[in-house]
Design a binder for these strands. Structure first.
Lengths: 120, 120
DNA sequence: CTGGGTGCTGGAGCGCGCTCCAGGTCAAGC
DNA sequence: GCTTGACCTGGAGCGCGCTCCAGCACCCAG
């Protein structure tokens, strides 16, 4: 259950530098240390890191990630606010996908055009 | 049919600086100039700029955009290569959308979790 | 007991894609 | 004729999200 920094990084698929960076800028609170000052990650820590990474990968900017991290910190009674923030992000993913599909449509029309010209 | 820089920028939805930047790095060739050295855009120029912008917005990095721009420059007989490049981009859009949908699934499960806890 | 591997910190550096700026030119309207 | 405003150039600067580095500490294997 306790993971060393390298293990944690491997499991989540980020670099140790990224983990340190996330801790430094306040995305990842409460990581314990061993006697030598090294980070020790719990399953819960990995869960949080993985979620943050998922949000980041799906386009959430760091500033907003930070607000989410604060909610994670701030008591148990804000599940509502966490859910609300994630729901907004969910909508933003929908928007982004819709936008991508529009652009893809244009790309596909251009492909058709090039393919139709191709015979000549 | 001929557009001034400001008009061109407005129509495509980019800044004049972006247009100059694109020209400078070789994305936009053959923009004519008036007697005073100012850019004059044709409908064709706007079409190319719009397509480049669409590719950029859908995630194509500048380096690849440049290769596409070279194909646009290089004769009429490379419609095949243009189409191939765009088809690869089309697949990449599909991949990105698929990835986003996976991440969205995780986000939605977390929302459900928070909402289920919420009553307590 | 020593060498290598892993980790620590603070801070500098980087890659991308613009964006801004200084200093100048030109064209049109008053 | 003079002002205003859009545009020009080369080059510096920026915001984001890491990534790398120097210099040091610790721990375990041989």
């Amino acid at each position: 259950m306790p993971y060393k920094p390298g293990e944690a990084a491997d499991r989540i698929g980020v670099s140790i530098d990224t983990i340190r960076y996330y801790e430094k800028i306040g995305l990842l609170h409460g990581i314990r240390r061993d006697s030598g000052g090294r980070r020790v990650f719990s399953d819960d820590d990995l869960g949080r890191l993985g979620l943050l990474r998922c949000l980041r990968d799906s386009g959430m900017p760091i500033a907003r990630l930070r607000r989410f991290a604060e909610l994670l910190q701030g008591g148990e009674d804000n599940a509502d606010q966490r859910a609300a923030l994630l729901e907004e992000h969910d909508r933003e993913i929908d928007d982004k996908v819709a936008q991508l599909r529009l652009e893809q449509e244009r790309v596909r029309e251009k492909i058709k055009w090039y393919r139709s010209v191709h015979g000549q």
